[in-house]
Design a protein around this nucleic acid. Structure first.
Lengths: 239, 239
DNA sequence: GTTCCCGTGTGACGCTTATCACACCAGCCT
DNA sequence: AGGCTGGTGTGATAAGCGTCACACGGGAAC
């Protein structure tokens, strides 16, 4: 079956093939059945906003397919992207648990499939299923860990170059390309977005890329980026 | 009874008078009894290190008395303080849950009383007590929330002045002094430490304080600091 | 009292980076 | 083809702030 946005919808978590790989989804059958009864399977087009920072929490969004941009925004319109969420992540979890407003804004950057669960339903579900509750704690730990990395990158770097180097190394290690001497990675974001990820300006990112190319550290072909000198990048990243 | 560092030790969580005020400690009696059996009541002098970032997690530290500095540190020795933990907080929680290394370093800045629980004991405890597990999720949400604020402050501020203003306002709102027009607060940290909290240099903090005093926005008497013009501070903080 | 040390105050200098301004290019629509 | 739009490249300029250097003062130790 096809959803409005060209996605093939996975109707039930019970039969989802991707379940086992995911921290939250791989629950015992009884819990999964209960989850099945309270979730709403939904789909969003690219550019949809799941929730906005400051909103009081309506519930959680389990991302099944597609990527979601998680960001915060200052009063004067500057945006900082904390991470690009991947399938398997639970969005809006900490706000839903604590009852405080969402900390971040979640915006889809692909067509996405999402399971939504209302806050009251989810909290009741957690009280009744201790094992799910532990998974939630694990997910939250993961998110906390992530936030700490962000803090480290933003707070302890001396220059924008250092932060960019860190980001590129991290990206290359995601794709299992880390082992290779010349990892390649798809550049799925604009300079503007990269700037927002490392807390700098678009122009600085452009200039840094130019310099990296001049120094033969990276090389780009279309939207694919080759890291030609990983050692130099590591040096720039300060580790 | 007296501990080595002049602390009056609270022997049992069951009879602890402060229990009700604390997110984690206020557990049902059955869970509390179980917790009682696996915890080690310990005391530390000022300046003791509970754990270091990068260590694999030994377990959790429930802070009963005193304050603990939570920080990260770069390879070149620069330090960033994420927060000063207060009694009632559970330290090392996310690492203990996820099994990944401690994200932060925890160092006491007062004589402290701490309940330590070994990782295996704690995980078993969580599996057996669903309500405690939910409290853990709440604590983790709190910590995540905190980290997000830090990210916002570090990543979206235009200047050190903005970050300092934010910090001072936050401190004044802690002490229930927020309502007053001229909140006062105890300056318990050195300029160096304040610099480490907002990710800037000691000299910059000194200069900023000098300017704030010159502009009659703050005033200090001994280690007490009066905020004389909260509106101006808010303006500086960009909100 | 004297010494020592830590925290604070302040000037000079230079690097990094934000900002503004504009040119250029590719793809898309009409 | 022509125009438009969104992303990219690049220069000039100025501000913010890190860094080094050193002076000062107060409290603790002796």
């Amino acid at each position: 079956m096809l959803s409005p946005y060209g996605l093939e919808i996975v109707e039930s978590c019970l039969t989802c093939k991707l379940r086992a790989e995911r921290i939250f989804c791989d629950l015992p059958n009884s819990a999964l059945q209960a989850f099945e009864n309270i979730k709403y399977a939904t789909a969003y087009p690219k550019g949809a906003v799941l929730f906005v920072e400051g909103q009081s929490p309506r519930g959680i969004f389990v991302l099944c397919k597609g990527r979601v941009k998680m960001s915060i925004c200052s009063t004067d319109g500057k945006t900082l992207i904390l991470k690009i969420a991947e399938p398997g992540e639970v969005l809006g979890l900490s706000a839903t648990v604590s009852g405080k407003p969402y900390e971040l804004t979640a915006e889809t950057i692909d067509p996405c499939q999402v399971n939504f669960v209302k806050r009251e339903d989810f909290l009741r579900f957690l009280k009744e299923h201790g094992d799910a509750c532990f998974r939630v704690a694990e997910q939250l730990s993961e998110k906390y860990n992530n936030a700490c990395h962000e803090v480290r990158s933003l707070g302890l770097s001396h220059s924008a170059a250092e932060k960019l180097a860190k980001l590129l190394l991290e990206w290359s290690s995601r794709n299992g390309e880390a082992a290779k001497q010349e990892p390649r990675l798809k550049l799925a974001l604009t300079h503007e977005e990269i700037a927002q990820m490392i807390g700098t300006s678009r122009e600085t990112v452009t200039r840094l890329f130019a310099e990296l190319k001049k120094r033969q550290i990276i090389q780009s072909k279309g939207s694919t980026l080759f890291i030609r000198n990983k050692a130099a990048l590591r040096l720039m990243a300060g580790s």
